[in-house]
């Protein structure tokens, strides 16, 4: 504290603070338009509420971890700042002498680390494994009523393919869309993902889902929408210069609306089917 006060009292400090402030004004953050714009635009401070069946798992575990690490960090901060104030060097103050190498010290350290491991890590690990097995990795099959979508990513768009009414991929009534995906509410939506060129990653933040689309292999992922509405799809893996533009729309329709939509879409697909167009024949055998 004293050194800080001394520093604040000296001319040199103020000269340098002044210069610093000047640099600051020259530096880009003094751009008034930028700040104004940031205030004017609508602001969001977190993710949108979860719209998928298993999204609560993420939300709850995130909250739990936040509480655990906040407490740990607070304890650490106290142990860090308290000596800085209480044990600061001053006349007549002596440091205690302790190598911390006694058996007691070692046992103490071991005990605390075991406790920290159990409270911080093991607890979270157990919940995470449960969530993964019950949720993320428990991919429903076709027999369990899954709505299946094949995703072919490319620089820089998302190609989606659904079976249409016949339930078969690679037929004339396949519903093929670009950057636009329509799925039913309250039914698991399962994806087969791959890529034509570079690695992309299908990111549906409101469903709490992300999975890479790797060229040369097919990846699986799923979620079950519980709310009807429009949601964002983003690309989360750097894929070249228009990476940031690689968004798509996700429409979740109520079961009735979806039935009608699928009927229409299938009919349009059959009508527009062109067997000569090999570019559009990219379906593959579904991989469970």
């Amino acid at each position: 504290m004293k050194t800080l006060l001394d520093a604040l009292r000296s001319r040199a400090t103020w000269r340098w603070l002044g210069t610093g402030a000047l640099l600051l004004m020259l530096s880009p953050c003094a751009d008034a338009a930028m700040l104004q714009e940031a205030v004017d635009l609508p602001n969001r401070w977190g993710p949108n509420p979860s719209a998928s069946d298993y999204g609560w798992r993420y939300d709850e575990l995130f909250t739990l971890i936040t509480i655990l690490i906040s407490v740990s960090f607070a304890i650490m901060l106290i142990l860090l700042v308290l000596p800085m104030i209480r044990d600061r060097a001053r006349a007549g103050h002596k440091a205690s002498f302790d190598h911390g190498s006694s058996l007691f010290d070692k046992r103490f350290t071991a005990t605390v680390s075991v406790i920290v491991f159990i409270v911080l890590d093991a607890w979270v690990l157990v919940i995470a494994v449960r969530d993964l097995r019950e949720g993320y990795w428990n991919i429903p099959t076709e027999l369990e009523g899954a709505y299946r979508v094949e995703v072919l990513a490319q620089q820089w768009s998302w190609n989606f393919r659904a079976t249409g009414l016949d339930g078969e991929f690679g037929t004339a009534d396949d519903v093929i869309t670009i950057n636009d995906l329509t799925v039913p509410q309250d039914r698991p939506v399962v994806f087969n993902l791959t890529s034509k060129d570079v690695i992309h990653s299908l990111y549906v933040p409101d469903m709490r889902m992300k999975r890479d689309a790797n060229p040369g292999a097919v990846n699986q992922a799923w979620f079950q929408p519980i709310t009807a509405g429009d949601f964002a799809i983003l690309c989360a893996e750097l894929c070249g210069f228009a990476h940031y533009q690689m968004g798509a729309q996700l429409h979740v329709l109520s079961p009735e609306d979806f039935g009608a939509w699928e009927q229409d879409a299938s009919m349009i697909a059959v009508a527009g089917f062109d067997p000569e167009d090999t570019e559009a024949q990219w379906a593959w055998d579904w991989k469970e």
């Binding site: 993420y58 971890i65 890590d121 690990l125 995470a128 990653s201 709490r208 889902m209 992300k210 989360a236």
Partner: peptide, 15 residues
Amino acid sequence: LYLATISTDIFLHDT
């Protein structure tokens, strides 16, 4: 810890 835990990393990965 958020990133070591797969079920939270799925959302936070590459953000």
